[in-house]
Nucleic acid binder design. Structure first.
Lengths: 249, 249
DNA sequence: TCAACGAGAATTACATACACTTTCTTCTAT
DNA sequence: ATAGAAGAAAGTGTATGTAATTCTCGTTGA
């Protein structure tokens, strides 16, 4: 599909992020890319896009440049922007990279120690996970709940690492588009149980100020997602519960 | 200093990179930041900057946005761009991150194997280093020569990893501004000797298809630079030969 | 004394017109 | 027919004017 994606289940400026059209436009374009409304490798036409979004070319160009900075678009002088392609191999690699980076984050956290706020968030996420997993199986919707719990844990830990570059790089890894909806990792109850157990151990390692152990545990923790993805890519067995890989890693 | 840096040892459009003023402007601003012509934390005034560079605000804004994407500037809506600050701790951390990333690159290279072109470059760099180090000491200028040899080795290896995201992240690590000229690492003959020896071992590990070993070796190889930086920050002993850390890591 | 307010200045955000480059089309010569 | 060139069409790059927002600083009132 071309960049004629429908810009309006909402009024043009209704969603606008904090008084800045460029940012709003940026979100819309990103969304369109991640949705697959505009397909990979496709060249983006500024005038058409600006007409669809009902703004001038100026904020559109700004948004495109920002998205290129995020790595979602490629830019060629005098030729404009094209949607970057992410082959399966790149998606798989991203997990390795993320594993290494989150490992470093865990190490930093163990070296620097947790702030009271971060520790509180982590302990809450651990407790929430415990109670969710307590009854030994998943109801519908539980996986979505755990996704948030998981997110809290990883975010708090990343905050504890207190390094912006690291945070940004990990964010980039998270934002790799999953090209096809088939690239999902199947997580069942016992998988999540194991992953939550990992969280406990990582937390313990950080509390005990064991940087190396924390790093290794986290690295393994994330690497497993990659392994699962590779497995599901080769097997392609459709089990009941599925979740986007990035969301539960 | 404000953003009134002198834009012209050259004529305004003389250096322009490939028919695109934005890119040329971008280079100039980046240079000014890395030079320290504009100091960290400083807010950038678009109109003044565009007057100094003798272009309109449009390409200036484009350049600023792109530089924000590179991580050199911070952007706040309706407030513009400010030069991002890189405290010492961030610079030190960048080496840890880079160590982890280059470690992954080495592993990928070992897993995927070297292309004939990459292998040739690496072997050439190893041979060149051997002959340079042969006479057991450094003449003036030798360190500069080795800097290039070192660069070739790391670049070829990164190419062998064949992953763009990884390459970009490592590039970002390299581009962290060294805030002060005092943040340099002292490398003497025997340090370089050891580092070159590392290169040989890493190459062997890759050739032998030993991913894990290649990763560990590379990681240690880069980590040492961080350790040296930390050491030189505490000691501050000025030895004869000095080189920018990033250049010989 | 100091916080809150507000008018004017400064600065960024956006729209639009025009210039330049690329790309597509078509015509010509071989 | 086909390669190549010329011209038209489309698309990106830049300049500039205007709107909207933030900043500055003096004033007011408690």
């Amino acid at each position: 599909m071309s960049d004629t994606f429908d810009p309006a289940p909402f009024a043009p400026a209704a969603v606008s992020r904090a008084g800045n059209r460029s940012l709003s436009v940026m979100d819309q374009i990103r969304e369109a890319i991640l949705n697959g409304s505009v397909s990979a490798g496709e060249r983006i036409n500024e005038v058409r896009l600006s007409k669809n979004l009902d703004v001038s070319r100026t904020p559109v160009r700004a948004a495109l440049q920002a998205l290129a900075g995020e790595g979602l678009l490629d830019y060629s002088p005098n030729r404009g922007f094209i949607v970057r392609e992410f082959p399966i191999s790149a998606i798989v690699d991203a997990y390795e990279i993320r594993a290494a980076l989150e490992g470093v984050a865990a190490r930093f956290a163990a070296e620097r120690g947790l702030g009271s706020e971060e520790r509180a968030v982590i302990e809450r996420s651990l407790a929430a996970g415990d109670s969710l997993l307590e009854r030994g199986r998943f109801e519908s919707g539980d996986l979505t709940i755990y996704r948030d719990i998981n997110g809290d844990f990883h975010e708090a830990l990343l905050a504890a690492a207190s390094n912006r570059m690291l945070a940004e790089m990990i964010r980039i890894c998270h934002h790799v588009p999953v090209s096809s909806s088939r690239n999902i990792v199947v997580f069942q109850y016992h998988d999540v149980r194991r992953r939550h157990d990992d969280h406990h151990r990582i937390f313990e390692a950080i509390q005990a100020r064991e940087p190396h152990r924390a790093e290794m545990l986290m690295r393994e923790h994330v690497s497993v997602v990659k392994a699962s993805l590779v497995k599901s890519l080769t097997e392609r067995s459709d089990t009941t519960m599925a979740l986007r890989d990035a969301d539960v890693g």
